[in-house]
Design a protein around this nucleic acid. Structure first.
Lengths: 342, 342
DNA sequence: CATAAAAGTGTAACCGGTTCCACTTCGTTT
DNA sequence: AAACGAAGTGGAACCGGTTACACTTTTATG
């Protein structure tokens, strides 16, 4: 364990002042004779010198770190989002501090406190919905906050990047209706989440457009974590007049729901047509291949990072940017065409 | 955008010196009168003061940040690993800087450079296999380096946490042999990776124990990224005397291989028995449910974090810890019992 | 009640960088 | 040849915390 050389060690070894070394370190910050520059560089090389980020950050709040606060990285959707965000950030020389909330607003508050102390320049988050004061404070402090995938309606001044949830719910439902389904169930995220609410709103719109009756019993909200999705599926199956088609709009619960259907011996699409919000390669390998709603994760990531780093340009407050990208409905074989008993 | 209060602002507002405020901030660092403490706390509250991590880190190399350098977070195995590592770290008050290499050693070198500059206390990584000098340097600098999942044999002084790859390869192969399979193929990671090599060694051992002939044509290495796994599968299928069973030991390529089998119209387990190294919930939903090798990701994460934070205890150099946890073979229905044509 | 020990507080240096500004040393311009 | 400007360099203050040490005030002890 060797002691780390500092800028003064380098300066001394090269026979110059620390100011010169610093200028070599930050090209453009001042003139340095070519000969001096190479000499200093050689010394740094031979000493194995690496400038310390912490010291550098002390001077100015540095746009060099970004907080990524997700619900849960074991969910493949968030995992791929994290992957893309990290790549986008690295491409800009930015580092990513990864945190998870487990959908727990208390944990979220703790994480946000650390992010404040670290003075990160931006935060990309899937908010739980609470801790509104903290989010406001973060913004007041000059942190660029971007909500991705979800948002908090009572915080309209925060940037949002998400898919068009309303349209996704609508189009998935419309497809089922067009295939002759009259009783269509939907399992979505908690009613407190914008994601869940918007998708259900789209669902309602599609039913209305198709002239179908809305039955509140067919609309289920399931928490993001745990086995809630499975229970919701069971409840739908046990209905007196069960649905013939199902939109699984809670990404986190897709496998739970499918597991329950499978255990109940419900054949897809024979006994139940299914459309899931999920883009795992596995959906294509299922028997039958599942019809899915594919979220353009790359776009979500790119826009999020972009907004989270827009701080320097000093946007006027109150001008929140809302970016909605459209999801893609990929038709495969899990939706049956129903013979209309006329 | 308000200017952030500093410790001196707090001191002034509370009518005390900065030393006192600092002692309030770090309980145990010195005596503070109870009355003073509450007053200072109130002032901090009302001013919205948050101590700045960067300044604090300047004094000592702080065990408050950990680097997690993975190949790729879109791979569910790594994603779940990241999830667990983050949780374990948070439980200890440690933050995680997430980085990806895309299996590219040049990118890896860049990431490592930033980790050095940040003076992280520990690094958990899936190394590409190159950049050996940098890894050594990191260790010499006092950073706790832990390789997870894979290792670099020529760097024996680095801690390693992984599953027992040899035994996993052996038991999966043995299961197939016990079911009467005589021609068993294996698709594993690149021969340069310890993971791939060890699993194949276990495979050979099992064949030998079962008295089966080893055919080099049945052993395929596939790169972690891209469609290499699919190509390897096709190659096996096109063999003059193709295998009746397949061990897919390259986690990253599992879906690629299955996709190829499916497109080729190969029924599982009718025309091909399969065991995959993968523990996604989807494996259970497949038709038929897949027999899998399950890696205890929680354990991998816990041990990794533990080792990566062991620095203070100052281990003697040369005493690398190697932790091997055992993977679980979960039998489901993708392995057929073969009638032995005697 | 004198005095030693303990409690509480403040001053100033330090961590490792960046940067303002003053100072030399040249090469150019009238 | 004098005057000027640009290039190159160094000294020292600063960023926002922590902490060693000196100092004052209490409290405890004989």
């Amino acid at each position: 364990m060797q002691k780390q050389p500092t800028i003064r060690d380098v300066a001394q070894a090269a026979g110059v002042s620390v100011a010169v070394v610093s200028r070599v370190l930050n090209p453009g910050s001042g003139p340095v004779a070519a000969a001096t520059r190479t000499r200093v560089n050689e010394v740094m090389q031979s000493l194995g010198y690496h400038p310390r980020t912490a010291a550098r950050e002390l001077k100015f709040g540095p746009p060099t770190t970004l907080g990524l606060l997700l619900a849960d990285v074991s969910n493949p959707f968030f995992a791929r989002l994290a992957d893309r965000v990290v790549q986008e950030a690295h491409a800009r020389g930015i580092q990513v501090l990864l945190m998870t909330t487990q959908e727990d607003d208390h944990l979220e508050a703790e994480r946000l406190a650390t992010l404040i102390e670290r003075r990160v320049s931006g935060i990309i988050a899937t908010p739980t919905g609470n801790n509104q004061e903290i989010w406001k404070k973060l913004q007041a402090l000059g942190t660029d906050v971007v909500f991705v995938d979800r948002s908090i309606p009572t915080l309209p001044e925060v940037d949002v990047v998400s898919i068009d949830n309303f349209e996704s719910g609508r189009s998935a439902t419309a497809l089922l209706a067009a295939h002759g389904h009259r009783r269509i169930g939907i399992i979505s995220g908690p009613a407190t989440s914008t994601t869940g609410r918007d998708r259900i709103a789209g669902y309602r719109e599609a039913l209305e457009a198709a002239g179908l009756e809305q039955d509140e019993l067919l609309i289920r909200s399931a928490a993001f974590r745990g086995a809630a999705g499975g229970d919701a599926a069971s409840a739908l199956l046990n209905l007196e007049d069960p649905p013939t088609a199902l939109v699984v709009a809670n990404t986190a619960q897709v496998t739970e729901v499918l597991k329950r259907l499978s255990h109940a011996g419900i054949a897809i699409p024979g006994a139940m047509s299914v459309i899931v919000f999920e883009d795992s390669p596995w959906t294509e390998l299922m028997t039958p291949p599942l019809t899915i709603v594919r979220q353009p994760i790359d776009l979500l990531a790119r826009h999020s990072v972009q907004l989270a780093l827009a701080n320097t340009s000093g946007r006027a407050p109150g001008n929140a940017t809302v970016i909605r990208v459209s999801a893609e409905l990929v038709e495969r074989s899990s939706v049956a065409r129903l013979q209309l008993a006329k």
